[in-house]
Computed example of a mutant assay.
Amino acid sequence: MHAMILGAGYSGKAIATNLQPHVSQISGTTRTADKADPLAKNGIKPFIFNGEELNDTLRETFASVTHLIQSIGPNDAGDPLLRLIGNAPMQSLMPKLEWVSYLSTVGVYGDHGGEWVDEGTACRPVSVRSVQRVAAEDAWMAQAKTSGLPLSILRLSGIYGPGRNAFRNLENGTARRLVKKDQVFNRIRVEDIGAACAFLFARKADGIFNVTDSEPCPPQDVVTYAARLMGLEPPPEQDFETAELSAMARSFYGENKRVSNRRIQHMGFEFRYPEYRMSLVQMWDDKVWQG
């Protein structure tokens, strides 16, 4: 079996680590040649894909791909791969393809006033990027139907893990404790993304799955807990309404919801890091937080 990860970045590398025991080859794309060596060191055969065109080498590699994981985000023009395929079935590019996974975001649900949402909840995206994600999900579902392929859509919450976490933010002075009344977020440890993708891969699962932790909470609580583990005084709390924020940063706080992960758990998947406290303790105690 040959797995291809389009956009083999932070999450893609974790997925590759979990897929390695199950496949004979893992390929992955990156936009620039300078990022190829890190992929190779992670057991991923690197290819360059700028999102605009497919070179001959990549097309030749696609001919043997059996499992596709698409991690590249859409833009105003849509999903980069589907835009290049057009109305043709996926087999026109990957004749041996058996299963597709699309990495999306819980942002597609939009704002639900802090209420719980699950895979059956209607999408009502707020931000431009979430509107684009909904369109990309719809396009992939249409493509999967055309191609007769099972499709797993993984809706991910805020991604963190070794190298990307509250410890690093405290270390470099960028950590903030923004307080907005009743605001909560979910998050997901990157290793759990890799494990969940491998779980769905093994079952050729079809459907939408929330890949997120089990304990949505106010974001400032995570910073406070990380500071306590480091023996530091946490940064002062700031009122969200008066804080200086970029438009993108402020837009994140326009979506307030609690995301349920019960569907994938009912299938038998167990999250290794279901809540942030045990996850932060593990990173700190095992000295892996710096990445």
Rank of each mutant, 00 (worst) to 15 (best):
L6V: 14
Y10T: 03
S11K: 00
G12A: 10
T17G: 05
H22R: 10
V23Y: 09
Q25G: 00
Q25S: 10
T29V: 08
D34F: 01
A40E: 13
N42A: 15
G43A: 06
P46K: 03
I48C: 05
I48F: 08
F49P: 07
G51L: 04
G51K: 04
E52A: 13
N55K: 01
N55F: 01
T57M: 01
T57C: 01
L58Q: 04
I72T: 06
P74M: 05
D79T: 03
P80E: 03
P80T: 02
L84F: 09
M90L: 15
L93I: 13
P95S: 07
W99A: 10
S104R: 04
V106Y: 00
G110E: 12
E119T: 11
G120P: 02
G120V: 01
C123Q: 11
V131P: 00
R133Q: 11
V134Y: 02
A135S: 13
A135V: 03
D138S: 14
A139H: 12
M141H: 12
K145M: 05
G148A: 10
P150H: 08
P150F: 03
I153F: 03
S157T: 06
S157C: 06
G158K: 05
Y160A: 04
P162Y: 04
F167N: 05
N172I: 09
G173E: 10
T174A: 11
R176S: 06
F185C: 05
R187M: 11
R187L: 06
R187K: 05
E191A: 14
D192L: 07
G194C: 09
G194L: 09
G194H: 01
A196D: 05
C197E: 15
A198N: 06
A198M: 09
R203F: 01
A205F: 07
G207L: 11
I208M: 12
F209G: 05
N210P: 12
N210E: 11
M230N: 08
M230Y: 03
G231M: 12
P234G: 10
A243N: 08
A243P: 09
E244L: 03
L245C: 08
L245H: 08
A249Y: 00
G254I: 02
K257Y: 12
K257D: 12
V259F: 04
S260N: 14
R262I: 01
F269L: 13
R272S: 13
Y276P: 11
R277P: 10
M283T: 07
M283W: 03
M283C: 06
D285L: 11
D285N: 15
G291L: 08
